[in-house]
């Protein structure tokens, strides 16, 4: 004999529970809102930093400075060997003369210094392009390999400082994960506590439900919905705060990003982040309430 409109019935019971402990529920939702907003803001900061570092990584290349007087055959063999290295996309030879021209053009203010010299001090070199999106470690590995080849005097991949930055980014990622875990645990515990109080206030009702033959699922469902609503509403308002702050601050950061990465508006998956926050909030709410319900029913 089926027929009760269960979703409606459970939702009505859940809303009744929220209404009965309205203040407590508001406090819970506010805490979830701020926790999720903090999570969202830090995730955004991380995504932007990662965007900048990725762009730098994309433009990373290797300069292999050649020994003086390298002959044509050695040079050709060297270029072929470099091309054969996994991750190398292309190699370009820059002669001493071209290096001199480039130096004068790019650093015109210093050209006088070079002109005062008797001979061209710049070495010939090979500009090595690596596969785009390769991480600093990969580029460094290729640079070391090139450095060991015959005819190569020195190698520079301009990424020592980028490596440091990547380490900082990794540290940022670890901190973000730790902070997130802390915030998520807070949310689970606060939802769990609120639901436990609601359950205590409806202790008699739950006891009677058990006595008349209600299944555990039937008893649990309104409380799970209550936790889900707390989590989702809290996360939704948290997402709105993140969106509001982003809209207010981001447009002013264009020049800053331009200097950092040559792109005034790096793209971050904003919609994805906000949707993730809301879904995560709901999931954490269910987790918190499941925890409370399980403990309560086991103790009963």
């Amino acid at each position: 004999m089926r027929g009760v409109n269960y979703p409606y019935y459970f939702l009505a019971k859940a809303l009744k529970g929220i209404k009965r402990h309205l203040f407590l529920n508001i406090v819970t939702v506010v805490i979830i809102t701020f926790s999720m907003a903090i999570f969202g803001i830090f995730s955004l900061l991380f995504l932007y930093t990662k965007g900048v570092v990725d762009r730098w990584e994309e433009r990373m290349g290797i300069s292999a400075y050649l020994e003086e007087g390298i002959d044509r055959a050695t040079l050709k063999a060297l270029m072929d060997r470099i091309r054969a290295i996994d991750g190398v996309e292309g190699v370009r030879y820059i002669s001493k003369e071209e290096a001199y021209r480039l130096f004068k053009r790019e650093l015109s203010s210093l050209s006088d210094v070079v002109e005062d010299l008797d001979e061209n001090p710049l070495p010939s070199s090979l500009e090595v392009r690596v596969r785009s999106g390769m991480e600093v470690e990969g580029v460094e590995r290729i640079a070391r390999e090139i450095g060991r080849l015959k005819g190569v005097e020195d190698v520079d991949f301009g990424g020592q400082w980028l490596k440091r930055l990547a380490t900082i980014l990794k540290l940022f990622r670890v901190s973000l994960v730790a902070l997130s875990l802390f915030l998520f645990l807070t949310i689970v515990l606060i939802v769990s506590n609120t639901i436990r109080l609601t359950m205590f206030s409806r202790k008699d009702e739950i006891e009677i439900m058990e006595l008349v033959g209600a299944t555990e699922r039937f008893i649990k469902m309104p409380f799970l919905i209550e936790g889900f609503l707390q989590g989702t509403i809290g996360a939704f308002t948290g997402a709105l705060i993140v969106l509001g702050l982003h809209s207010a601050i981001f447009p002013k950061l264009g020049p800053f990003f331009m200097i950092l990465s040559g792109n005034p508006s790096p793209r971050v998956p904003m919609a994805g982040l906000l949707l993730f926050m809301v879904l995560l909030g709901g999931a954490l709410g269910i987790a918190g309430s499941s925890f409370a319900v399980k403990r309560f029913l086991e103790a009963a």
Binding site: G3, Y9, M209
Partner: peptide, 13 residues
């Protein structure tokens, strides 16, 4: 009525 709601009995019944 609660005893029957908990068993999923249709409202009219």
């Amino acid at each position: 009525a609660f005893a029957l709601e908990a068993l999923g009995t249709p409202p009219r019944e």
